[in-house]
Design a protein around this nucleic acid. Structure first.
Lengths: 156, 156
DNA sequence: ATACTTGCAAATGATTTGCCAGTGT
DNA sequence: ACACTGGCAAATCATTTGCAAGTAT
C-alpha cells in the first residue's frame, strides 16, 4: 500500500487527544495518568498493570499499583484502553485502535499466543453467529486450544 | 439400557471406578475425597470448589476448602474432573464425561451462559483449524461475545 | 474552591502451601 | 508401618477499597 487507504480512523492518536476526552467527561489528567498513557503508547503489546507501574517507577516517578489500576479502569470506560486475559496470569492492558489491536488464540499446552487481525476471524465469527446468534469476540477472552506445534508433538 | 447404542464409553461411571483408578496410581480415597466425588456426581452443572465444601458441610462432615481444592486437583490430573472459567468468578468443576460435559458461550453483557453439545461446535472448530492449525476447545475457556438478546436490546 | 486523584494501607476473593496430626492400604 | 491425606493457619496473587492529603481546572 502506497497511498495509505485511510489507516482506520483512530479517535485517540495522542495523549492530548485522550486528555481532551477525559476533560470533556469532567475528569482530569494528572501526572500519574499521563505516565500510564505514556507506558501504554510505548508498549508494543498488551502489558500487565504491574509492569506499567514498574516502568513508570523506572522513569523516576512513583506510581502506586492501585493508581495504575484506577487509571486503567477509567481509560477503559472511556474506550481508550482494553484488556485481555491470556492464561491464568494478570490481565494485560493495551490501547484500543493500535497495531496491538488483535484477537488471540492461546495454546493450553505451551501457553503460546497467536495474535491475529480481527478480519482473519470473520469466517469463524459468522459461523458462530449463524449457529448460535452470538456475536463472538476474542479480544477479551481468547480462543483456547492446542497449537499446531504441540498437536504435532503429541496428538492426543 | 436395553440395546443402548454405546452411550459414549465413560471410564468413570461410579465412585468405585474412580477409587480403583486412584489406588492404581498409588493414591488413596479418603472419606473427604469420597464426599467431593459425591457432590460432583450430584451436581447437574459445573460448581465452584466453595460450593462443594459447603454441601459437604451441610451433610454434617467438615471439608476444608483447601482439601476440596487438593482433591479436585488430583481428580483433574486423573482425568475424572475438569474445570471451566465462566466470567470473572471462581473456577467451576464438573465430572468429565457426564451430561454436564459441554462447551460454552458466555455473554459479556448479561453474563448469560449457553452450554452446547461439543458436536455443535465442530464446524467452528474446523474453520479455526483450517485457518490457524489450532485445535480449539471451549471446555476450559468459553467463547465470549454478545448473546442474541443483548445484541437486539442494544446493537452497538 | 471544588471535587477529582493520589499514595498508602488494609481488605477481598480465589487458590496455594507449610505443617503436623490422622488414616487408608 | 509408610506415605498419602486432612484440617488449620498463613501465604500468594490479582485487584479493589477506605481515607486523608494533594492538585488539576
Amino acid at each position: 500500500m502506497t497511498a495509505s487507504p485511510a489507516p482506520a480512523p483512530l479517535a485517540f492518536a495522542t495523549i492530548e487527544d485522550v486528555a481532551a476526552a477525559i476533560r470533556a467527561g469532567g475528569g482530569r489528567l494528572s501526572a500519574a495518568g499521563r505516565r500510564v498513557l505514556e507506558a501504554l503508547f510505548e508498549a508494543d503489546r498488551p502489558i500487565p498493570a504491574a509492569l506499567i507501574a514498574d516502568r513508570v517507577a523506572d522513569g523516576g516517578s512513583v506510581l502506586d499499583l492501585a493508581s495504575a489500576y484506577r487509571n486503567l479502569e477509567r481509560l477503559e470506560a472511556l474506550g481508550v484502553v482494553r484488556h485481555v486475559h491470556l492464561g491464568h496470569g494478570p490481565g494485560l492492558y493495551a490501547l484500543v485502535g493500535c497495531e496491538s489491536d488483535a484477537e488471540y488464540l492461546v495454546c493450553e499446552r505451551c501457553d503460546g499466543v497467536l495474535a491475529v487481525d480481527p478480519a482473519e476471524l470473520d469466517a469463524v465469527r459468522s459461523e458462530i453467529h449463524e449457529r448460535f446468534g452470538y456475536e463472538a469476540r476474542f479480544t477479551h477472552f481468547p480462543i483456547a486450544g492446542v497449537c499446531p506445534e504441540c498437536a504435532e508433538a503429541d496428538p492426543a
